[in-house]
Design a binder for these strands. Sequence first.
DNA 1: TACACAATGTTATATTATAACAATTAACAC
DNA 2: GTGTTAATTGTTATAATATAACATTGTGTA
Lengths: 132, 132
Amino acid sequence: MLKQEILSKNQQIVLDYIEKVNEPIKAYSILHNVQKKGIKAPLQVYRALDKLVEIGKIHKIESRNAFVACKNSNCQISKATAFSICESCEEVSEISDSKLSKYLKNFQDKAGMKFNKYNLEFFGLCKKCSIK
Amino acid sequence: MLKQEILSKNQQIVLDYIEKVNEPIKAYSILHNVQKKGIKAPLQVYRALDKLVEIGKIHKIESRNAFVACKNSNCQISKATAFSICESCEEVSEISDSKLSKYLKNFQDKAGMKFNKYNLEFFGLCKKCSIK
DNA sequence: TACACAATGTTATATTATAACAATTAACAC
DNA sequence: GTGTTAATTGTTATAATATAACATTGTGTA
C-alpha cells in the first residue's frame, strides 16, 4: 500500500474539521467540535491526528500544541515544514519557499549528522498587528 | 536594568541542575531532582524555566517539551535557535552555524512579515545510531 | 474462509502547564 | 532608615495535553 489514499472514518472527520477552520486548532477543541459526529474520546482524536500528521495532511505547530491543515498539496512536505507565527494575534501561515526548503534540506551539521526532517517556526508580528 | 545578571535562588537551583545534566530534561524531572534543594511545586520550576528561557540561559526543545542549557555563551541567541535531534537515542545538540543563522535572521516571507525570533529543529539519526 | 492488520471504542491515568492568591524579599528613591 | 514598587516565593488546586491498556470490530487479501 502506498502512503494511504483513503482515510478512515475518524481520520476524515478530524481532517474535515481542521480544513474547515483553516487555522491552528488544539486537540481538545477538535474533540468538542466533532462530538456531534460521534467521536467521544481524546484518544480517538489523537489517533486520527497522529495518522494525519504522518501522511502529511496536517502539521503540528509545536510551539502552540496546535494542528493545522497542510497548504502545500501535502506529501513529502510533512518532513520539511516552516511556519510564521504572529506573537500578537497568533495567526499562523505555512511558508512555502523553495530556496529556503532547498537550503535546509541540504544543510549538514558539523558532526556530519544526516537529517531526514525539520521543522522551523518563525515568530514576529504580522502586517496587521505591526501597524497597531 | 540589563538582561538580568543575577539569578534568584530558585532560578539558580534550576539552572545549576540543567547545566549539570547537560542534556534535555523535562520539567517534572527537574522538579524531582531539585526537591532536596527545597523546591516543592511544579510552579516553582516552571517560573524559573520561564525566566531562564527569557534571558537565554536555557532553551526549550519544543518537539520534546524539554529544556537544555544554552551552549552558545547565551544572550541574543535565545531568539535564534537551531537543534539537531536524533530520533533514535534522542540526543540533542545545539547547532551553531553562522551561515545558517545569518540566512534565517534575514529571511523575509512573502507577506513581508518581519521576524524577531525563530526556532529550528532538525531530525535524523546521529552518527552512533546510524551505524547500528 | 481465515488470516493479518488497521482502526475503533472505552476507561483510566500519565504528563505538562497554569490560575489564583497570600506572603516575602530586593531595589531604590527620598 | 522609611516607604514604595516590583520581583520572587510559597502553596493549593486545577486546567490542558497526551498516552496506556485492552477488548472489539472492520477491511483487504491469500
